[in-house]
Design a protein around this nucleic acid. Structure first.
Lengths: 344, 344
DNA sequence: GGGCTGAATGACAGCGCTGTCCCTGATGCC
DNA sequence: GGCATCAGGGACAGCGCTGTCATTCAGCCC
């Protein structure tokens, strides 16, 4: 019950420790019979290998770091938990474990943290969320150290995989395009838009989707488009600007849910009934989106799957498999709730 | 730049590796001069010790596991991120790292996961959130293996520390008492209450606080108290039951924010203006609480600090310090927003 | 039959630290 | 001076694995 070592297993199975190692790691050179004997011995002893020993002598640490940034209620953090759960599940399948770290780009310890991750922990890979995943300095540091890096919703100008790592995302352009069309199909024509953070790749893509859907490349009355930063607070003035106009839009599409909720909040204060006099839509499907009044029409991303794919990518790479893509695009889906309806 | 080892540092500082180890670990036997020389050598080589090697040869792994359970939008998960950030910060201070794992009590791999945590990873401690932290089987397994265990918001019948580990919490009774009194001070007398999950210790404490504040031990019209499970969905029927009564309460205090939001939602559908005709309050101060309409009056727990304290406890214990308490109680604070007002 | 190939397995040397034990020289005390 | 004491520091043996290389023994070809 204390702690069986590989020596114990070897003794019981009557083979060398190296053979035990081989069997447990699924290496080819082992007869079926030996394999069975070793497995049985391991099971009977309730053996689990020591991660530290494996890491120390081998080339893998079986550790993946998920690095977050931003404040607790920042947009990136809001689906962080979900991302993390996906990654954890994928890790479990591969004998890996997920380490979570936190840093801000501007933080003074940011370099030291990465150094620790690479040197002290020797993590097998790193998963980065925005905006960390778009920091060239960080990315090149990781690349240079040979750490596999997966970026969540990265900018597209990532260059080659060698240099920038791999990424997972949804098709932000299409998601925004479809949501805009959904509003148009309901009869809306005056559809306001609240932009996302200018440095976030997804923001531009979403805006492009909106523009193309609404005017098909033609000019758009710019009064319909207001700046935002993906945060609830940044959505407030944008919503006020949109709703304060003499000819008020009949629908507002915010580049994410946090800002869409800000629209809901401003409309509530101004006494504008939603969806009666105003339809509101967002993107992300945050847990809160289904809970606000009225429940928000939005775009759901398979965040958990994306997290799992990120971790799996690292694990597979470390196990020797080579993929060829730079970025994996996941399917999104429109979630129509009660915040949208045909204009009065 | 590749990877300096302790040998390199020893060579440069012209001492034995053991001395380097001593200096870096802050052990006493080293003259100030030697200490300085070693530190300087380590810095110049950009040396960071290997965690695996330390774990393998020493008695500490420098790893703390934070184990979560429940679904993404379960109550426990909603402040999980915050808890985690606190723990990460505390870990950083002590040279520790946070590993996150996920399991359900009912899950089949639940035992195996714990086994892995203890045997394979040899974590120095485990932080458990409800309802995991109240599972006697799990707790005794950890205790038996000598793993330090910190429970977040645990039941009180924990028994001795040896057996059950340590816990962090707020004074749920007082929080509920104060919130109820706040509503009473505003003039409310018909204050409905939605209970929390019956198996969760905090639920009973909050209810007791409400009862004592409202009727000072005397009988309470039981129509005012409706069952809930801490989830948004469970709050819906409870809210309907309360608001459907001929003599409707003028305020509803839900045992947590998720259910308070359900009240907001039901009131909205029924056309009951909040706070005009109904005041609503919760407990937790979820990120969403400030975003719903109207923003929710609630009780803020210092979740981040609680997470930090939990991690710090494990680190200190591992470093040899011994505390004496079983449970550390943190200060909460009432957050008065717009969902409460004097009755019309 | 001799030599060759290849599958199955073992011996052994670390990986980079920490724990334990031991050595050295200075200090203090009678 | 003699002896215990103690701070400061080193030698050395692992911790429990994996990588590398060597070894063994069938089977097989000419």
């Amino acid at each position: 019950m204390s702690k069986a070592t590989i020596y114990d297993v070897a003794r019981v199975a009557n083979v060398s420790i190296k053979t035990v190692s081989r069997v447990l790691n699924g290496e080819p050179k082992a007869s079926a019979e030996t394999r069975a004997r070793v497995m049985e011995a391991a099971r009977s002893l309730n053996y689990t290998p020591s991660l530290s020993a494996r890491a120390l002598s081998g080339s893998r640490s079986f550790l993946i770091a998920l690095v977050s940034s931003g404040g607790v209620s920042d947009n990136a953090m809001l689906y962080f938990t979900e991302l993390q759960m996906g990654a954890i599940q994928a890790c479990r399948g591969g004998g890996y474990h997920l380490l979570t770290e936190y840093t801000d780009l501007g933080a003074s310890d940011y370099g030291a943290l990465m150094e620790t991750l690479v040197s002290t922990l020797r993590v097998d890979g790193v998963i980065l969320v925005p905006p960390l995943c778009d920091d060239p300095q960080l990315l090149s540091l990781l690349a240079q150290r040979g750490v596999i890096c997966v970026r969540i919703s990265p900018t597209q100008d990532g260059g080659t995989e060698e240099k920038w790592g791999w990424g997972v995302d949804i098709d932000n352009y299409r998601a925004a395009f479809q949501m805009t069309r959904l509003l148009m199909d309901q009869g809306h024509r005056d559809i306001g838009f609240i932009q996302g953070h200018p440095q976030h790749a997804a923001a531009a893509q979403r805006e492009a989707g909106y523009r193309d859907a609404l005017f098909d490349g033609g000019p758009i009355p710019e009064r319909l488009i207001q700046p935002g930063l993906f945060t609830f607070d940044s959505g407030l003035p944008a919503a006020r600007a949109l709703l304060g106009q003499k000819r008020r839009p009949t629908a507002i599409f915010a580049a994410n849910d946090s800002m869409a909720m800000a629209v809901l909040s401003v409309a509530y204060k101004m006494g504008i009934p939603v969806p009666g006099a105003l339809s509101v839509a967002g993107i992300d499907d945050l847990p809160a989106a289904s809970v606000v009044c009225p429940p928000l029409t939005t775009v759901r991303q398979p965040v958990m799957e994306m997290g799992a794919a990120a971790a799996r990518f690292i694990i597979d790479r470390r196990a020797g498999q080579v993929g060829s893509y730079l970025k994996q695009i996941f399917d999104h889906s429109l979630v129509v709730r009660e915040s949208t309806a045909p204009p009065a």
